[in-house]
Design a protein around this nucleic acid. Structure first.
Lengths: 383, 383
DNA sequence: CTGAAAGCGCTTACAG
DNA sequence: CTGAAAGCGCTTACAG
């Protein structure tokens, strides 16, 4: 071990109170000393050492101190696998990565895992990350994870309207929490942002700017979040006394390209919308591209509001107005909930609905009909 | 269990060959049947059942078939914790999330985890994700994970020039792979993209467009990747016979804001650069903002090349030219390497250097001095 | 080919 | 206060 590393460690150790040399004398072997070795070293029974380390009240303070010190000196770390088998708890929770997460969920996965880790860290639990190759695979995956005893609870993201994963976990009576909700969300634990309310806010805002032809660019409705947001759009359109035009609702693939395609369709209509709300920032980026490609200016000729509040939206062209989610704490909250449920809490006592807020940047503006109409008439002239 | 779920499962089961009713008769209890129960059900010894399930050659085909079928019927899943304790292998690898990953590493974490999962999936290993609260915490975290026997190997990202985590794992003689490299990278396994070569390509490209005042916007040099990319810049500047101007090298925080601040400094110089290479796309987005704020047009007045190849760069203003990394397979490769090393391979036989390629979008263009000079003289007039 | 037993490294009643 | 023993649910030599 080089001097530099030792410095680092000493620094570290003095900060964490581990003692001065946690792996001195043993630094050549990766396997940590076992309880048996530690007990032999101390001339005590393994049970006694175990109880001392676990702060049992029936151990004399002197012994406890001796044991602690020897454990530090020898760098003893309990073997978690053995500990868990013995105690009958995996002390681990699992996160099932959403399918296609690389493209769909990228923006929030790192943050979610970090938050989950924080919640678990307080109790020294581990986080297992699993992913399925296909939807078919996913149920089998969950079944296996649950039954193999590797985790004490599961968290899943992006539920479908009627999600078989949720029903499977309910059937198995296995602790779980959901990042999002399904259509009937009464009897399990979830953390979600109110997408319906968010789209009411977005549409109301556009109406207040004078818009009345407002379109919705959405994702496949098998996802509950896509349905929620559409519901909010519909509700607000009705509330504001506008007529719902089915052509103004465009569902596409949940990507920037999907957003672009949907927006192209909208702009090529005889009566194009003057404002568009998009189910995600990513789709909104595609919408901006389509608008620019039509020679129109987002925020002037056509307003756009996204959903997510991605930091990156600041750099879009122009900077994207969006409904920002307070998702920094989602992972933390989900982790705390799951732990509480594993401890016996009633899942339905753990349901948390957050609100998104309007983050105005540069793509929302007052109604200007002229340019959009020009675009239509010039197309007509060409025909 | 509702009819809908049963349908899903039947579909699933027929596809995966599990048999028709893997948790029939047992769907009320979350704990799976144990070997003991299964053995009793079959009137066999547990050892026999275990060997049958694990395809030992000394089990009669008839018995094996009987055991298999009963296991399917009762929904038997071996308890992994027990299995691992018994076999002495955790069948799990760990990924240490980079510090501040929510801001820094977001773009690639989901993809990396997915790839890692794919590599592990072939052998039914698990993926444990750990994260540290602080750099001090990180070493303690690794030490604990290693010694607690929870994982058989570790992967870390974004190494520092002289990374104490790597030295700790080497001291412990513990299997690990690195996503990136350190200054001396001979004796361990890594997967990296050649940042030095990438910046040579980027600078050469700008020189070929006529630029000679080319600036570098970088990240703190304690990160090896930041140093590599700077080295490439320096090398190419020299190779092209340009003089290295220390003022043209700006190191800032590794965020979009950092990129913006660094670029503001560059553009406010008496002799501003006409082209900028940035250590990441994120910093480049900040550079574009600074350029636009100076009334200049990226790609015309000032060229910018980023690094990463983020999909989002398409939506920047204007779309960002970048050195794109082939990182789709990083996780997969890293996982395969680690497994091979755990199996006994020499780590130094597993070093893989990939190349980035120039992805031209709209921010690289031929030299136009006029506008940048105007900007400078108008500032001088004001003084 | 199958069974009985030991062992993986812990925890936790139960004695004393 | 400490020790000896049983047990968690598997795997794997070792007998027969």
């Amino acid at each position: 071990m080089g001097p530099e590393l030792r410095q680092y460690e000493n620094f570290l150790l003095s900060e964490t109170g581990f003692g001065k040399s946690f792996h001195q004398g043993d630094s050549m072997s990766r396997r940590s000393v076992s309880l048996k070795v530690l007990a032999a070293h101390l001339n005590l029974a393994v049970g006694t050492v175990s109880r001392a380390l676990n702060n049992y009240a029936d151990i004399s303070p002197a012994t406890r101190a001796r044991v602690r010190q020897a454990a530090d000196e020898l760098g003893y770390r309990p073997n978690q696998t053995a500990r868990r088998l013995s105690m009958g708890t995996p002390e681990t929770i699992g996160y099932i990565m959403p399918l296609h997460s690389a493209s769909i969920a990228q923006p929030f996965i790192a943050q979610l895992l970090q938050g989950l880790g924080e919640a678990l860290g307080k109790r020294q639990w581990d986080l297992l990350v699993a992913h399925a190759a296909s939807p078919k695979d996913e149920l089998a995956q969950i079944d296996k994870i649950v039954r193999s005893g590797r985790v004490g609870g599961l968290v899943i993201s992006r539920p479908l309207k009627n999600d078989p994963r949720i029903r499977l976990m309910q059937d198995l009576k296995f602790p779980f929490v959901v990042h999002g909700r399904t259509a009937s969300s009464d009897n399990y634990a979830w953390y979600d942002v109110d997408g319906e309310a968010a789209f009411v806010v977005a549409v109301d805002h556009l109406v207040s700017l004078g818009h009345s032809r407002i379109a919705f660019v959405g994702a496949p409705l098998q996802y509950q979040f896509a349905q929620d947001r559409l519901n909010g759009y519909r509700k607000a359109v009705a509330t504001n006394g506008l007529t719902i035009d089915a052509d103004l609702i465009q569902i596409a693939e949940f990507t920037d390209d999907g957003g672009e395609i949907a927006t192209n369709i909208l702009l090529d209509m005889a009566m194009p919308p003057t404002a568009i709300v998009c189910v995600s920032d990513t789709m909104a980026f595609g919408a901006l591209a389509a608008i620019r490609a039509h020679g129109l200016t987002p925020g002037e000729d056509v307003s756009v509001i996204g959903y997510d509040g991605l930091k990156f939206g600041e750099h879009a062209n122009p900077p994207l107005t969006t409904m920002a989610q307070p998702q920094a704490h989602a992972g933390r909250r989900l982790g705390d909930m799951l732990l509480a449920i594993i401890d016996g809490d009633d899942p339905s006592d753990h349901q948390e609905l957050q609100r998104a807020h309007l983050l105005r940047r540069k793509t929302d503006g007052p109604l200007h009909l002229a340019k959009v109409q020009d675009d239509v008439s010039s197309r007509e002239e060409l025909q």
